[in-house]
């Protein structure tokens, strides 16, 4: 299944751009997390990051649909 990823902050650096399409096998969001960690080992450092799907923060058990947008927003601290 094709999932759209939109990355902010340091996640954008890790996945090499703001937008990315990811092919995942299962429909569970946890699969996206695992796929990101396996393709981009540095993403492991953000392993505890909560993901948003479309416009909602959800748990990793969330079931995804084709073309859902997974949004990665790591904490930023600047002021």
């Amino acid at each position: 299944m094709k999932i759209k990823i939109t990355a902010f902050g340091i996640a954008k650096d890790i996945v090499g751009g703001k937008h990315l399409e990811l092919e995942v096998s299962g429909a569970e969001l946890s699969g996206v997390r695992q796929e990101l960690i396996s393709q981009f080992p540095d993403f492991g450092k953000l392993a505890s990051l909560k993901f948003a799907v479309n416009t909602n923060y959800v748990d990793d058990s969330c079931q995804l649909n084709e073309n859902d947008e997974v949004v990665l927003i790591p904490p930023v601290s600047g002021g």
Partner: peptide
């Protein structure tokens, strides 16, 4: 609720480390 615990420090650069566009703040 968003970030229960912080990621490692190198994953959260400050403005002095990561930079910031002047108009953004």
């Amino acid at each position: 609720d968003l970030f229960p615990t912080p990621p490692p420090p190198e994953m959260v650069p400050s403005c002095s480390e990561g930079g910031v566009l002047g108009v953004l703040p």
